[in-house]
């Protein structure tokens, strides 16, 4: 292993730019700007993130790639266009991820499992099999750097689809019908920021067993605190 220059979290915003996103696209852009501002005020967190924004419609446009947000004056703007190809979205990510992780590792960084924030307002194109690409992307035996995907359904998004996109049931969100979409997006970016900032460790059980029995001769460590 070469010199460890740091531990980085690659974050991808996979944003629906299809035509029906028109009413929400300003809110999305405001959310991205707010995220940028928040991260700039958190230099510890910002240093540990490399940020990509991929807009998808019929195809995918890479708006920004592996950016150190401290070096960016402003984030690019998303714009509504075309249909809703989840297939294009997940295929693009599948193409990019291994190379991106390899690039960062080549620069001497250790890389955390990438986080993808997927935002869409509705149903994907029905004539495409996006699930195969999604499965390949998220299967850790196939894609070593398979990401955690957090999905955010905007507007009339189908909750079932959002659950299928997210890699954990707890990672799926839909905005409540009739609620302020701008607020939903702001809340979503808030959770994105927190997850980026609080990159603390998670608990795993592994093969270890919880201790239940008092060890023989056990005494309390009374001088502790």
């Amino acid at each position: 292993m070469p010199e460890n220059r740091g531990n980085l979290l690659p974050v991808y915003v996979l944003a629906d730019e299809s035509g029906s996103m028109g009413p929400y696209i300003d809110d999305l852009n405001d959310g991205l700007r707010s995220l940028h501002t928040t991260l700039l005020a958190e230099p510890m967190a910002a240093a540990k993130v490399r940020f990509s924004v991929l807009g998808f419609a019929d195809d995918v446009v890479v708006r920004i790639a592996l950016a150190d947000l401290r070096q960016e004056n402003e984030l690019p703007r998303l714009s509504a266009r075309g249909t809703t190809s989840y297939l294009a979205a997940f295929s693009a990510l599948l193409d990019r991820l291994p190379g991106d992780v390899g690039t960062l590792k080549g620069e001497g960084y250790q890389v955390h499992r990438p986080a993808v924030f997927f935002m869409s307002d509705g149903l994907p194109n029905t004539y495409e099999d996006w699930r195969s690409a999604h499965r390949k992307l998220t299967d850790r035996s196939v894609t070593k750097a398979a990401p955690n995907i957090i999905s955010c359904g905007i507007g009339e998004a189908d909750a079932g689809t959002m659950l299928d996109v997210a890699t954990d049931r707890n990672f799926a969100f839909v905005s409540v019908p009739g609620s302020d979409i701008g607020q939903s997006i702001a809340g979503f970016f808030g959770s994105l920021t927190r997850s980026v900032v609080e990159s603390g460790r998670s608990l795993a059980s592994g093969d270890a067993q919880l201790i239940v029995d008092r060890p023989e001769g056990f005494t309390m460590a009374i001088d502790v605190i």
């Binding site: 250790q110 499992r113 070593k144 603390g200 998670s202 608990l203 795993a204 201790i211």
Partner: peptide, 11 residues
């Protein structure tokens, strides 16, 4: 990729 998961005490 590196993992942030850990198996700590009281396990």
């Amino acid at each position: 990729v590196i993992s942030s998961a850990v198996t700590p005490l009281p396990r």
